[in-house]
Each structure stands twice: as structure tokens, then as C-alpha cells.
Lab assay of single mutants.
Amino acid sequence: MQRVNMIMAESPGLITICLLGYLLSAECTVFLDHENANKILNRPKRYNSGKLEEFVQGNLERECMEEKCSFEEAREVFENTERTTEFWKQYVDGDQCESNPCLNGGSCKDDINSYECWCPFGFEGKNCELDVTCNIKNGRCEQFCKNSADNKVVCSCTEGYRLAENQKSCEPAVPFPCGRVSVSQTSKLTRAETVFPDVDYVNSTEAETILDNITQSTQSFNDFTRVVGGEDAKPGQFPWQVVLNGKVDAFCGGSIVNEKWIVTAAHCVETGVKITVVAGEHNIEETEHTEQKRNVIRIIPHHNYNAAINKYNHDIALLELDEPLVLNSYVTPICIADKEYTNIFLKFGSGYVSGWGRVFHKGRSALVLQYLRVPLVDRATCLRSTKFTIYNNMFCAGFHEGGRDSCQGDSGGPHVTEVEGTSFLTGIISWGEECAMKGKYGIYTKVSRYVNWIKEKTKLT
């Protein structure tokens, strides 16, 4: 034993070699072989497995989906700052455009905790909710729209109204504003409101030439003092309507412009014939205590009207009353817009006519005020429907199939267009061939041609 100890002390290297040989010859039971080890760690190889990531292109799944990435790591994937920024906006807080917040056709661009709407022409605001041009839906104005110097929408209202708090709607500024039905039992019968379409306001006024200088022999019209197929109006439903009495009662109609003036057809009036105007009328054979009678003290036909040349060209006249009318729910003026808007309103496509005229061709006159909704007829169809001249200051309205029309005794009465609950004068009943005849239409004086003249002559002093 002493000898062994001496050998170990003198030859430590020998001992180490012996131990190493023993270990190498022993069977290893701690580690699995290569094949079995792979069965336990069965993990798919990654895209760049075996390579240094710093030297390969980034992978979106590896960089940002398996674990949260930084902007720089995302930049490695896209290799483009702009594309990385677009991805980053949604990656950080989701897609803010998912709810489609942009209105009126706006395009949404996502941002971090926010979004941006790219608005089409005519709109602005956070969600493109603000109209900035009158060309689109009248700028959301209830009545009139004008573009300011910086191309912003400025709404306005006709006389007797003021802008509401929203700067879009119009509200009454006087007790009985024009064009409004205020009798409670008839307010439910107000005709369907007309909503502004998209309009090209630059070209809204037709490029028409008034044929002022045409000389033409007097034409022989049949029954051209021209509501057939209409309905009984309720008291106060058309408070701007008046009836004219002269040699015979209810020979023509008219509309209240203001307390002192009536507008009617020029062919209705004769110099030297006494005319009485009755406002607030409903049943011409009954006294309903809503009527107001006034005498006409002055007749002003349009300066281009000449019955000797043509009885229905420039067929418009103004009547001055001896005493002002007292405005109330049964006696209310009709609204008159400017030339541009009167023309736009007419193009809405349908209007209402009213009167006490004959209820059928050569038949009896109506006792109760009649009204009828009539569609506008395109000019080409209008011209083809008659052998008589249709001037540019006239328009056609009615039904091709016949059966409904204005008729004798309705002449001078109103053709009105309702705009968001307020009625505007767009025409004056003038003439036609018979009444409600198939293929024939009622012919009306186009008020847009005469609004400046009306307003100039009827100013209240």
C-alpha cells in the first residue's frame, strides 16, 4: 500500500490518463441519441435557420407576430419608411378606419389613436360632414345658397324668414311668412316636400332668348283662358290664391305678392273693366268669414305684352289694390325667389296649380277651390304637342294621358313649387288646347323671366 501511494504521488498524470480511459469505455446513459432527441424537440425550422439574422431580410411573422416588435424591426421587413409607417399605425392600436367614419364618399386613412378623412370636392370637416359648395344638395341650405369668396357655403332665406341657429334652416321672422300653410287642420295635408338634388348652379339658368321682337298675326285659340281631375282644397291650404270678379264672377285667378299687390295673367284683364279681388276665398257660393274683398285701382301688364300681336306672350300683369290686405292664416303671400332659384325650383319637376275653373272641358265651374299636382314636361315634348308657338318664356306641365289639367277660369292662378315646406311661385296658368285632352298640356308663363320686374313694381313704400 505504501508503494502504491508513492507511485500516485510521483505520477499524477498517469492516474488522470487511467481515469479518462475508464470513462470513455463506459456506456453513456444520461444523453439520448440524435434521433430520439429530435422526437422530443420537434420544432419547425425557421426561415433563416442556421444563418445569422443580421444578414437576412426581415420576416413579418418572425419579427412582429411571434413577439412584439419595434418600429426598427418592422422597418427591416418593409425596407421602406412609408410602408412601415402605414403598417405601424394599425399594428400599434388597430384600424381606426374600420367603422368607416368618413361621410359623403370620403376616404379614410388610419393613424395612431386617430384617423384622417380625405374629402371629395365640396366637403370638409373631420368626417367630411361639412358642405362647402352650393353645387351639392344646395349646400344643405333649406332655401338659398351662395358661395363666399373663400368658396364656403353661405345660406340665406327669402323675405319674412331668418336663418336658424344651425345656419342652414329657415324659420319665420314674421307672423305670416310667405308660402307657408298655417291653418292647423290643413298642415297635415301639406304636399310632399321637395329635397334639393345635386345641381350645376353655374349652368342652372337656361341660355334662352326671349323672342321679344317676333311679330306674329293673332292666333285663334280655343278655350285658351284655361282644375280638371283635381281635388277639393281645404280652407287655408292655398292662402296665396285669390279669385278675380268682373263682368262675371271667378273669371280668373291670381296670387298675393304682398298686402297691396296681386300677380295674374295679362290676358285676364281689360282696361276700363272694374275688377274686384277676393282673398281668403274657399267656396265661392258661401260666406265663410275668411274672405277679404278689395278693388283694383291700377293694372300693370308687362311692358312687352301686346294682345294685338299675341294674347299669351309675356302673359303676366300686376294688380294694385285700393287697401292693403290683412295677412292671416287664410290670406298669405306666395314666396318669389330670384331668377336663378325660381328656375331651379321649376326644374324640380312638379308643381301645384289651383283655381275655381271648370271641372271638365266646357263644363261647370268649381264651387270649392280645386288643386292638382302636375309634372313638368320637357321642352321637346311640349313643342311636338301643339302647332302653336311655345315661346321661351312659357313652359308645359300636365299629363300625356289627359284627364287632369287646369281649365277655363283658372287662368292667372299660381303654379307653385314647394321647397322644404315653403311654396314659391314658378308659373302662372296661361293657356292650353281644350282641357285635359290626351297628348295636350297646360301652358304656363315662366315666372323666372319676370321676377325682377315683379319685385321692382310691387315694392311697398
Rank of each mutant, 00 (worst) to 15 (best):
D232A: 13
C435G: 05
S430H: 04
H415C: 02
F31D: 04
T381E: 09
F251Y: 09
L52M: 14
F144R: 00
G280V: 02
C18Q: 05
S255P: 01
Q143S: 02
N203S: 08
M437A: 13
I299V: 08
G50L: 06
Y161G: 01
Q219P: 15
M8E: 11
D410Y: 10
L60F: 06
G229V: 10
I275F: 11
W261L: 01
N310K: 05
P324S: 06
I390A: 08
I256T: 02
D322L: 02
Q96Y: 12
L425C: 00
S354E: 03
C170T: 02
T85I: 10
S114P: 05
N135F: 11
R75F: 09
M394L: 07
A317N: 00
T426N: 01
Q185K: 13
V269P: 03
H289T: 14
C102G: 02
A265I: 00
V331A: 07
S204Y: 15
P301V: 11
L376V: 07
L319V: 06
L189D: 15
G427K: 00
T16F: 12
R373P: 10
V447D: 00
N452G: 15
D150K: 09
S406P: 12
D110K: 12
I309Q: 12
V30N: 14
N138Q: 06
T276C: 05
P101T: 06
V202K: 13
A149S: 13
G442F: 05
A337P: 03
S99N: 13
S11T: 13
V326Y: 10
L52E: 04
Y305A: 02
I429M: 15
G402C: 06
E27K: 10
T218C: 05
Y391A: 12
C155K: 01
Y91K: 05
M65G: 04
V263A: 04
C268R: 00
I334W: 00
H267I: 02
R358D: 09
R162Y: 12
G21P: 07
P375S: 15
G402P: 09
G272M: 07
D223M: 12
E73T: 01
T225D: 15
K45I: 02
D315Y: 00
Q143I: 02
N38H: 13
L23M: 13
V278H: 06
P44E: 13
E456S: 10
T287W: 14
G21Q: 09
P101S: 05
K293F: 12
N135R: 12
C102L: 01
S329A: 10
L319G: 03
I336C: 02
S49E: 15
C170L: 00
G355T: 07
C141H: 00
S350H: 15
N113W: 05
E270C: 07
I429C: 07
H289Y: 06
D378Y: 03
T458C: 06
V30R: 11
T389N: 15
E79T: 08
E231I: 09
V202I: 14
Y91L: 05
V374K: 03
T381F: 12
E67R: 00
F176C: 04
T417H: 03
P235E: 07
N222D: 15
T225A: 08
G272K: 09
L327H: 04
K188I: 13
L211H: 14
E208D: 15
E288W: 05
L19E: 02
D315R: 01
A207F: 07
T389G: 15
E286V: 08
K39N: 08
K39F: 07
G230Q: 08
C396E: 01
G272P: 12
T85M: 13
K168Q: 12
V359G: 15
L318A: 03
G398F: 03
G427M: 00
I40C: 05
I316V: 08
W431L: 09
S411Y: 15
F399S: 11
R162P: 01
P301W: 07
C134I: 03
I299L: 05
S11C: 13
S411L: 15
L383Y: 10
A436W: 07
P12D: 11
M6L: 13
N328H: 03
A380T: 12
G21K: 05
G105Y: 06
V257G: 01
L103M: 14
C28F: 02
E259L: 04
I256S: 00
E72Y: 04
V353A: 06
Q185P: 09
V77D: 02
S187Q: 12
W118P: 05
A337C: 03
Y312I: 08
D95R: 12
Q241Y: 11
Y47D: 08
G409P: 09
Q219W: 09
T287A: 13
S184N: 15
R140S: 05
P197A: 14
T461Y: 12
G105F: 06
C157A: 00
V326Q: 14
G413P: 02
P239Y: 01
V77T: 08
V273L: 14
L369W: 08
F388V: 14
Q408W: 14
K152S: 13
C252W: 01
G402N: 10
F345V: 04
T276V: 09
W356L: 08
I7R: 14
P333W: 01
C435D: 04
S156C: 05
N42E: 06
R373F: 04
K234A: 14
